[in-house]
Amino acid sequence: MNATDTAVVARLAGVGKRFGRRAVLHGIDLTVRTGVTGLLGPNGAGKTTLLRILATALRPDAGELTVLGDDVLDPDGRYRIRQRIGYLPQQPGFHEWDTVYDFVNHVALLQEINDSRRRQSEILRVLDIMNMADCMHQHLRWLSGGQRHRVALAQALLGDPQLLLLDEPTVGLDPYERLRFRQVVSEVARKNAVVLSTHSTDDVAALCDEVVVLRLGRTAFTGCPAAMIAAADGHVWLSDAPGPRAATWWRAADGHYRHIGDPPPGADLAAPTLEDGYLHLVSRS
């Protein structure tokens, strides 16, 4: 997607968040546009907190944040934002005794889709997108992990949200479901914005127009995937033996040792991948 045909959907300026004495986010500056933005980072980097702030589930302690043109700290603005976002939490809880239909219906009512005919067609639409329409009368407690995940994703699509926030949406999905998920997200991102947090650089490579790498609550990188790969240019080395001075290294399937950071003696420079770019960014001291 070109920068010219994207619109700004959310803008963060100096956003910070603390839980008690522990600072989780420090002065995050970020502009979210139409298309897919991927949040990458190690556990504890602040990805979930940032998504929760964007979803209005948490209030920032510092900085300014506008989502879809409204200030998250203004109650009326927050209400308008909530009407136009879809959110998949990292651990979406379920009413286990509900059927799939009942659960999505419950969320549709919380979304204030009050007209019963419209609500019903919207529920069928999102369940159909996630290939769950055939299971809509099954109880959630009997569904597999992947099916539950698809139900959770279906509820986030209710009302065709202008901003879709997905916290680790591909965890637990098999390859076919992952492909289906990518198709759905790509379709949504044609006219709306999607922000997803993930540990998978494959997801980023397949989906994202923009990548944000968080590290210890700060932005370590913002840019397109190609720029993230370029960030590791000149830092990826291949050798026949491990080099302990490198920031990180591992033995690849071909038997060579891949290093990021300082090269071992006699190592050859290698072309970086997206994963190398990510590891280079998060392993820098």
Binding site: H106, V107, Q111
Partner: peptide
């Protein structure tokens, strides 16, 4: 499903 509920309008 509280986290979904708090972000609903």
């Amino acid at each position: 499903a509280g986290e979904i509920a708090v972000t609903a309008p």
